[in-house]
Computed example of a mutant assay.
Amino acid sequence: MKDILSQAEIDELIQSLNTKSEEPVLVKKEKVKPYDFSRPNKFTREQVRAIEDIFSNFAKLLSLRVSDFVRTTCFFEVTFIEELTFFEYTNSVQKSSLVGIFRVNQSDHNASVELSYSAVESIINLILGGDGNCNQNIFSGYTEIEINLIKRVLNIFIQPMIDVWKGFADIKLNLQRVENMGQHIQIAAPSDIIAIVTLKAHIAENEGFINFCIPYFLIEPVLRNIAVTKGFTRTSKPDGVSHEEYLKNKITNNIVEMICNLGKAYLTLDELERIQAGDVIKLKKKTTEQAELLLNNIPKFSVDLGQKNNKIALRINNTIERTS
């Protein structure tokens, strides 16, 4: 015979059902990314990461070249890479920017480099002997002298760019012209897909940006080589290791050249022509003076010469302080 529920048990059952029905039901919303079939993506993630690595190396080389040219510390870094149509890019070019047009491999294909107003003015100010500061709120156009100075700067971009692409493609670049109306440049059709690589420029105490516009049809022949190259295998930092320790371990095995500078001597061309075996050359250093030990051609230590185990040896005495 079936058990019969009491009234108290029936009330408890009804109450439990009501309690469960009051609990909110969570519905997981799936993230849907819209896809424009009229403009399919041309660049894969692997290709974008590889391009980022290439331009990161370029930014390091460019930092050295520009710093040497303007004689102050400049630093460039990749901030982002974006895929756009050429029409979208030209609409975003600022009126105060300067755009350099480069011809690639002596063909009809071109790429462009856009320099922001703050970057242009800071560089020009440094070239002309200033401190690199500029008034970013005032723009009155560019003179022919300023445009010619920027041409010299853009020509500095060529060799580092060739170096970082070496191994993927043998490219040749030639600066064609510099435009101060970047919205009207024509290096691709409005609907063509391009890659925009943006570098943040730290020049003196100012910041600006540099945009590299690369049409897809220009880079497409080397995309496969970029994606599969072993040189771009990424290694992640081990867990629990600080960034400083990780970098220290990476450079520990680097080789540093050491040269002992015994002294200097100056000869005329006539003396140099008549020099022969057995001649004695007098150095401009006394026997009581210490020699210099150079690390990567930089004087670092003062040393004494000696002998150990039938080999010439050096004893380090003092550190040579560098004077700026």
Rank of each mutant, 00 (worst) to 15 (best):
Lys237Cys: 12
Ile147Ala: 04
Val197Ile: 15
Glu179Ala: 00
Val48Asn: 05
Ile316Ser: 08
Asn110Tyr: 07
Glu292Ile: 15
Cys74Tyr: 04
Val280Lys: 14
Asp36Lys: 07
Ser140Phe: 04
Gly130Trp: 08
Phe139Pro: 02
Val120Glu: 01
Val32Ser: 08
Val222Trp: 04
Gly132Ala: 11
Gln7Arg: 12
Ile54Val: 15
Gln276Pro: 01
Leu218Trp: 03
Ala188Met: 07
Ile147Phe: 04
Lys31Thr: 12
Leu269Thr: 12
Thr90Asp: 01
Gln159Phe: 04
Glu82Trp: 03
Leu293Ile: 10
Asn148Tyr: 06
Ala265Met: 06
Gln183Leu: 08
Glu257Met: 09
Gln176Cys: 02
Phe76Lys: 01
Ala291Val: 11
Thr19Lys: 15
Arg224Asn: 14
Ser56Lys: 13
Val99Pro: 00
Pro221Val: 13
Asn318Cys: 03
Asn211Cys: 06
Ser97Ile: 00
Asn206Ile: 03
Glu144Gln: 15
Leu98Gln: 02
Ile123Ala: 04
Ala195Asp: 00
Phe232Trp: 09
Ile185Asp: 03
Tyr216Gly: 09
Val27Met: 07
Asn135Pro: 04
Ser38Arg: 14
Cys260Gly: 08
Val241Lys: 08
Gln176Val: 06
Asn211Val: 02
Lys33Ile: 15
Val241His: 06
Ile14Met: 15
Arg177Phe: 06
Pro215His: 07
Val197Cys: 06
Gly231Asp: 13
Lys284Asp: 14
Arg315Glu: 13
Ile259Arg: 11
Asn310Thr: 05
Thr323Gln: 11
Lys284Met: 09
Leu199Gln: 05
Gln290Asn: 13
Lys42Phe: 11
Lys33Ser: 09
Phe87Val: 00
Lys28Ser: 11
Trp165Ser: 05
Leu199Phe: 04
Lys95Gly: 09
Asp239Glu: 14
Lys300Trp: 03
Ile4Gln: 05
Pro238Glu: 04
Val280Ala: 14
Arg274His: 11
Arg224Thr: 12
Ile298Gly: 03
Lys285Glu: 07
Lys42Cys: 06
Lys200Gln: 12
Asp239Leu: 09
Ser67Leu: 09
Ile171Tyr: 06
Leu247Ile: 15
Ile147His: 03
Phe157His: 02
Ile158Lys: 12
Asn41Lys: 15
Glu207Tyr: 12
Leu223Asn: 02
Leu293Tyr: 09
Pro40Gln: 08
Ile275Trp: 06
Ile138Tyr: 11
Gln176Leu: 13
Asn254Ser: 13
Ala169Tyr: 09
